[in-house]
Simulated assay, not measured.
Amino acid sequence: MYTRNEITINCDKETAFRYARQVENWPALLPHYRGVQFEQGGSDRGGLVMMRAVRPFKPFKWPVWWVSEMKVDEQLCSVYYKHVRGVTAGMEVEWLIEALDEKEPVKVTIIHRWLQPPLGRRLAADMIGEVFVYAIADRTLQGLKQRIEEHGNEQDIQEEVG
């Protein structure tokens, strides 16, 4: 299974990276996130993080969760995850942030790869990818774009959620 979500955000690379890595703030910023807690580490250096979200289907919201090993690459302004628990265990996720111009805008790409899902989930992997993974990643990018562009490049994410 492979999905790719992309969006262009009117901000500098560092602002997009700050919002992408500070996942513990996402429940306050993104209505589809129910909770994000680090079991080990933190957003500054990465660690083991549990994420809980919902995938809306009218008239209800389907709850989903996963635990990932998160790694942060300061030089590349990238965030990497490997799902270690949950339905999507083994999935690899890569957040790439690229400057399109010298300062603004930036392109943010999320790539999900689930090359060897557990045997019982192989038949459902494409459906999980399209119906859940792609849809949740798209909501995440759209929500972060809206927050960043509404609050400006200089807005400190901690001030916004606090």
Rank of each mutant, 00 (worst) to 15 (best):
K103L: 15
S68N: 09
T15P: 05
I9K: 00
M51D: 00
R4G: 13
T8W: 02
H83V: 15
H32D: 04
R34Q: 13
E102G: 14
G143V: 04
E104F: 03
Q40R: 13
V54I: 15
R121D: 08
P56M: 09
F17W: 03
H32L: 02
M127H: 15
A124V: 10
P27F: 06
K145G: 02
K82Y: 08
P31K: 06
P59D: 14
K58Y: 10
I111Q: 12
V36I: 14
V36C: 10
T3I: 14
D12W: 04
V49N: 00
T88I: 14
Q142W: 02
L119K: 15
S43M: 06
L119Y: 09
P105F: 03
E74N: 15
W95I: 04
V64Y: 04
Q146M: 14
M91L: 12
V106T: 01
V54W: 05
V64M: 13
G162N: 13
E104T: 13
R18K: 12
N25I: 02
Y81S: 03
E154L: 13
K61Y: 11
A137N: 09
P31G: 07
F38L: 03
L29H: 02
A137D: 12
T109M: 06
R45F: 08
W66R: 00
E24L: 04
V93W: 00
K13R: 14
V93K: 01
Y19V: 00
E92T: 11
W62L: 13
G129I: 01
R121C: 12
Q158A: 15
E69Q: 12
T8A: 07
E6G: 09
E160T: 07
E104I: 08
P27A: 05
M51H: 02
I111M: 10
G90R: 03
L30H: 01
G162C: 08
R139H: 07
A99F: 03
A99G: 12
G47A: 11
R55S: 12
L141V: 05
A125R: 05
D73Q: 07
G120A: 14
Q75F: 05
E98R: 02
G86C: 11
W66Y: 11
E24R: 02
H112Y: 10
L119H: 14
M91A: 13
V84G: 06
G86A: 11
G42I: 01
L115C: 13
